[in-house]
Amino acid sequence: MSARATEQRLTVADGELVLRVSVASDRGTVRAVNEDAVLAEAPVFAVADGMGGHALGDRASAAAVAALRAVLPADRPATTSEVREAVRRANADVRRVGGQSMAGTTLAAVVLVDPAAWMVVHVGDSRVYGWDGRVLHRLTSDHSLVQELQDAGIIDAEQAQRHPDRNVVTRALGPHDTALPDVRVLDLRLPGDEPALLLCSDGLTRELDDAAIAGMLADGADAHDLVEAAVRAGGHDNVSAVIVRPEFAGLAEPPVDEQTLDRMLGTELEDTRPRRHS
């Protein structure tokens, strides 16, 4: 397992934001290669889960993460146009990895953007959660066959965990010329006394349900703890997690309203989920 914890600082419009970040990734107990890739360098945090077999999956996820790192700034919040360009670049680079073969990757990313907000960009079945210190909120909806079956009322959540096609995703970076991510914008000040953002591949949620994850976060778990628990529970897939815990002490209240968040989304990325973190 690879794991690390860092304290990162980023200057935003109303002061300095302190981010306590933990990252962990493991190939699990079945897979020969870890096809997940993670990025945790403010202002961007991301998990990508490669597809296309071990010959291509690890290269696809690595290409997506490398594109985000190359396009997005390293010392300031990004602009929404930079996020759009990063997603386009990631999709194009993953397509080049595949060549004549089929390669793809999921992407779950959270980017600090001006003015004082978090942008969530998501495609596939990797997830982003919000934690307010008591309740775990799922901020993304899986692009997967079983999620579509759940949404249609054909199966329930328990049946989805056992469904033979639970690994089939309906959107990814790479298969098509244009990526179709879901996008939402959150206030910089996340709710709760001890807020956090959790990004993870489906190797985590395959082994631990939301209640188990919430219980561990309530006990102070970091990314290493979550990944270790998923591996102990079976580790049937690669497992990756990134936890970002922002500290707002001494940070002025950012003057961002709902109309500002609306304008930040623009028209080039698809906004299919509620914008507010609730």
Rank of each mutant, 00 (worst) to 15 (best):
R166H: 06
G133A: 09
V123W: 10
F45P: 02
M216H: 02
A109S: 14
D132M: 04
D125T: 03
D225H: 05
A116I: 00
V87N: 07
H176V: 02
L208Q: 00
P73W: 13
I154E: 14
V94C: 11
G220H: 02
A86P: 15
N238W: 03
A13F: 05
R134M: 09
V123A: 11
A66L: 12
A92H: 11
T6W: 11
D93W: 12
M102E: 15
T105L: 09
A233H: 14
V168D: 10
L39T: 02
R134E: 15
A223G: 10
G15E: 09
L10Q: 03
S2A: 10
D225Q: 07
R184N: 04
R276S: 12
L39W: 07
A90L: 11
I154W: 03
E258M: 10
A55H: 13
R162D: 07
P77N: 11
D75E: 15
E85Q: 14
L107E: 10
L190R: 02
I154S: 10
H54S: 15
D58I: 05
A221G: 08
L19M: 14
L261N: 00
I154M: 13
A218Y: 00
D177A: 15
D132K: 02
R273I: 08
D93T: 12
H137L: 08
A60V: 07
R245P: 07
V33M: 05
W118R: 05
A32Q: 14
M264Y: 03
D209T: 02
D202V: 03
E85A: 15
L197D: 08
E7W: 07
